[in-house]
């Protein structure tokens, strides 16, 4: 049975933003172009545009987050929207019933958009499928599945440094298995048409059949870094140490930690990215994180512009719908 992609509306525009998978190149480029316009807003003395005045945006964070939530909040406020921050202790709401009940309550408060972060893969899809039809949903990270706004800010950062995507080789290093960021980056990069995406890590941190996503697999960091233009380091969660996934932080850093020596295998002008928060000395050395090739802090500031772009595009599509109806 063919299911319609719930994040795309009848006119082929974004209704929700749940994943970068299956989103056409033209739509991804539109987001990047929009963000370009919004970067200027942050540099002005009055940092607001009235695009979403009168709209209410609810940040529903079922999983703790500081940076992502803050950038969403800032982005919404710069668009003049009202913002509701709701941090939900995830242990109390692992049952679907309370999740749905909570949605009904927020709908009753006349929210227009939900920004959702949840520890379960598919949570944003679940919410998008069950909310009232006028509500838009943006996925701010669901389990190991997707984190599309993070991926788009990374695309934006790459484009600002490298220009066109077509000739780029990109390496994603570390815990691909549990990374929603990596999955969303891979889908966006392959859609934007880069030359090659590589994933680098031990087999214990790579999901089965990851090559089906259109990537090349490397277990050796220097080999995988050869000739790459962009290196994306992933955070290694502490809890991965308790299973049998890797023996120790020390051995992980020895094999996959990005040091100046390892960085030298990449192209001389390669940029180093990290979705943060970084573990210094686990996946990346301080020399590299703070070095001239690092664009890690720039990613954070680009996060605001990209989220402004995504929110305004989606709400704009919705206003368009409502205009047609009346």
């Amino acid at each position: 049975m063919i299911q319609r992609d719930i994040q795309i509306d009848e006119s082929g525009r974004l209704r929700h933003f749940l994943t970068t998978e299956g989103v056409k190149r033209q739509l991804l480029t539109e987001i990047l172009d929009h963000a370009e316009n919004f970067t200027a807003v942050g540099n002005r003395s009055i940092k607001k545009v009235p695009l979403l005045r009168g709209s209410t945006i609810a940040n529903l964070f079922f999983e703790p987050s500081t940076r992502t939530r803050t950038t969403f909040e800032l982005a919404a406020k710069r668009l003049s929207a009202d913002v509701l921050n709701i941090n939900i202790n995830s242990s109390a709401t692992t049952k679907g019933e309370s999740l749905l009940d909570m949605l009904r309550n927020l709908e009753a408060m006349h929210c227009d958009m939900f920004i959702v972060r949840h520890a379960q893969s598919g949570a944003a899809h679940f919410i998008a499928r069950h909310v009232a039809p006028h509500i838009r949903v943006i996925n701010a990270g669901d389990g190991s599945h997707a984190h599309p706004t993070q991926a788009m800010l990374d695309m934006f950062t790459i484009r600002r440094h490298k220009g066109a995507f077509a000739d780029l080789r990109i390496a994603i290093v570390g815990d691909i298995m549990h990374s929603r960021v990596a999955r969303s980056q891979i889908h966006a990069l392959t859609t934007l048409g880069v030359q090659e995406v590589r994933v680098i890590g031990p087999q214990t941190l790579l999901p089965r059949k990851v090559e089906n996503l259109g990537v090349h697999v490397y277990h050796d960091l220097p080999a995988g870094l050869a000739d790459v233009d962009v290196i994306i380091m992933l955070r290694l969660q502490r809890e991965r140490m308790t299973g049998a996934l890797i023996p120790s932080e020390r051995e992980y850093f020895e094999l996959y930690g990005l040091t100046p020596e390892k960085l030298a295998f990449a192209k001389p002008d390669a940029i180093v990215m990290h979705p943060g928060p970084i573990n210094r000395g686990v996946e990346i050395s301080s020399e590299v994180a703070d070095g001239p090739q690092s664009v890690i802090l720039e990613q954070v500031s680009n996060g605001i512009a990209i989220r402004m772009a995504i929110m305004s595009i989606i709400m704009g599509n919705r206003f368009g719908d409502m205009g047609e109806q009346s």
Partner: peptide
Amino acid sequence: HEGAVSTRLGLPGIP
């Protein structure tokens, strides 16, 4: 099932 779909959806797999 641990395979292409679980990898794509980020779901924990059963090999």
